[in-house]
Design a protein around this nucleic acid. Structure first.
Lengths: 221, 221
DNA sequence: CCAAACCTGACAGCCAGCTGAACGCCGGTG
DNA sequence: CACCGGCGTTCAGCTGGCTGTCAGGTTTGG
């Protein structure tokens, strides 16, 4: 998918861009409504991620102009506040979904994936990994035919591995998946969850790369 | 099944047409109410998918004229998310189901399949689920042979589970079934209805997936 | 053989979810 | 017109299990 990210905050913008790119989408990142307008006129996007408070105006106007111009590209709004009126107004302005900052990156991935699935009409993808069968949509896992229960956090972490099989994921990347932006964690929580996942899914499922991070064992052996 | 698709948006129309065709149905796609009226006069359809905002008028008028003419063909309405009151009005006008754009194509397939099952008088228009027998067409449920009464809301919720047995449904997905799209952010209404359904249908019928949503227990126990 | 990095069992606090109860609204009824 | 019963929604108290932390053990690399 081709994604336009409209976000003026440096740190957040980078994190979002990298995450979406890692998910396999092409991202154009602009920081003002002016650039956004120019981009949508020259390029056809499959999804727009739109921050509302921007240096040169409010995102609603941009969204309304889009819709008025007959552009039906799905739009997910990113906003700082939990203002209910914002949410309703956003949906009325033609937004498709809504993410309240701070959000964690797995949440973002999930929403973007939902749009992508809609876009491609993809059916339910079941991934096979050694003796594991993973149903991404239904959040179900079977190991040698037996169902395995994962908690919310365990799933969020494991999903990160599944979506990037064999790729090295640093601890901070994994932390960003589990926790809202900025809310860094002090202790060895990631290690604990890795441990819990290994206990449930098999010792060799996740491989430690000492000093670097973890990766999923794709040989599934 | 023979399906009439009334939808003026090019991209969406194509996607829907292809999806339904892939499901093995014959699709006629028209882009105006005028063509739609002409089509229903010359052909008998088993299902009509109806967009509401069309270049030559609003879909409700068409739907009402259909019903007034004694045509009982099932109608599924497709509409944008910003028309909150549409759902209630649509159901009053004689619609059978309701899909909010943008929707998942697999979601569409599920609803169409539900109609198909209902319409064809399938060998089993009654779904069996453990000790439950569910009659989708008549909205009747028997548990171990004894009739069970569900209220409107309870049925709306339960139907969502029945149409996608075993699939994980998030709270917001379930809320979307009960309300066109309200701001029902802070309330445990869904939990209350889950609780009531469990009381009527059996504790194990609906399984909680903590932090993620609910799913129907397909093992029926 | 040492230090750093990592693993994992245990545990207390907390939060998501469950449910009985109450309230207001609506349509039907006497 | 007042009453009544059913339905939808909200609230509050409760509970179980998830979560994050720590401590002590184990592995790895140099």
């Amino acid at each position: 998918m081709r994604v336009l990210l409209v976000e003026d905050t440096e740190g957040l913008g980078e994190a979002v861009r990298d995450q979406i790119a890692d998910d396999g989408h092409a991202v154009d990142w602009v920081q003002t409504l002016g650039f956004a307008e120019a981009s949508v006129q020259t390029t056809t996007y499959d999804l727009i991620l739109l921050d509302l408070m921007l240096p040169d105006g409010h995102g609603f106007g941009f969204l309304r102009r889009l819709r008025a111009a007959g552009i039906t590209t799905p739009v997910i709004i990113l906003t700082a506040r939990d203002q209910v009126s914002d949410r309703i107004e956003g949906l009325n302005a033609g937004a498709d979904d809504y993410l309240v900052k701070p959000f964690d990156l797995s949440e973002l991935s999930a929403r973007v994936a939902a749009v992508a699935r809609r876009y491609r009409g993809d059916p339910n993808p079941v991934i096979r990994l050694g003796e594991l069968e993973v149903d991404l949509r239904d959040h179900r896992i079977h190991r040698s035919g037996l169902p395995i229960e994962l908690t919310a956090r365990e799933w969020a972490l494991f999903e990160g591995f599944i979506q990037r099989p064999g790729m090295l994921l640093s601890r901070s990347q994994l932390e960003d998946r589990l926790y809202a932006f900025g809310a860094e964690i002090e202790s060895n929580t990631i290690e604990v969850y890795i441990s819990r996942l290994r206990k449930k899914l098999g010792r060799d499922t996740i491989v430690t790369v000492r000093g670097m991070g973890y990766r999923l064992d794709t040989h599934g052996h």
